[in-house]
Amino acid sequence: MNTTQGVTVRVENCAKTFADGTRALDPVTLDVARGETLVFLGPSGCGKTTMLRIIAGLEKPDSGGRVLFNAQDVTRIPIERRNVGMVFQSYALFPNMNVAQNIAYSLALRGAGKAERDSRVAELVALTGIEGLENRNIDQLSGGQRQRVALARAVAMRPSVLLLDEPLTALDAALRERLRGELDRLLRTLGITTIYVTHDQSEAMTLGDRIVVMRKGAIAQVGSPRDIYFKPASRFVAEFIGAANIIDAVSDNGVLVLPGGRLAVDKTGHGQVAAMIRPESIGIISPEAAFLVGRVASVSFTGDRQRLVVDGASDKPLIVDASNTLAVKIGDTVGLTVAPSAIQFLQGA
């Protein structure tokens, strides 16, 4: 059933002010392509869930805001008539029904005959990889299985848009990581336009065709996972996604002048800048050969790599992810090298 289902979604000038005057969302305009998975990512209280609820029809945007599915204005239409599938963090499975009954819940009402229902349930059970659990009660399922039942139930009616609100957050870390991959495969198979809310950046990276990073009710950046990671638009995005060294220094005609030496950058002109360098972009070389040197202040071995903190090179200690085979110890003087293209200049705060 790898057919691209779903609609394009357009959020136009949608803001949300609650009755008590709290501004949950500044005006947002955003397009989601048909079949795309768009992830809203941000810390709690950033407005990402409000955004999802506006798209679902559970919250009304402030006047002037519009939500369009396939260019058709659905702003005034309640959730019952928007044809959206929803999965919540709690899953909200019906505790008194078994797996098959949960999945078929909406089908019975649509005049589908028993045979049709059964075949649809079988199809969804196979798709979500929970064959054999049809007659289990909900309390007999693991967290990951519950999540899949919730997803199967949400897509049973072939919704135009699938809305997922932190669907993996209730699970433990190892399971979350495994399910991330499965969910990604599943969403691609379904091909439904999907809007996904999470505070977990790895989840956002794995699942999103594009990521919308949100902060304090506003969009901080929209882009592909690679864009967001390598070309963050602001200090906030840089620090929120992964580990980042943010260096405040003077850039002088293609050179960043630092306490421990210099770094070549592809930026001309003269002035104070904020430059972002990912820890894994910094190479360790012998100090004699380097233009930038520092002293190793700490080494933490994490198995797949070792994370160093290097003092004296920059205005603040640099975090460096080095190979797990590199022989280095505290107090060593090391040379540092960074490709000019890996140095990203940040704007704003």
Partner: peptide
């Protein structure tokens, strides 16, 4: 009872 049960139901277009 999970407060989202009603939300899910209405998204499934169940009265």
């Amino acid at each position: 009872i999970d407060q989202e049960i009603e939300t899910v139901s209405s998204s499934l277009r169940v009265p």
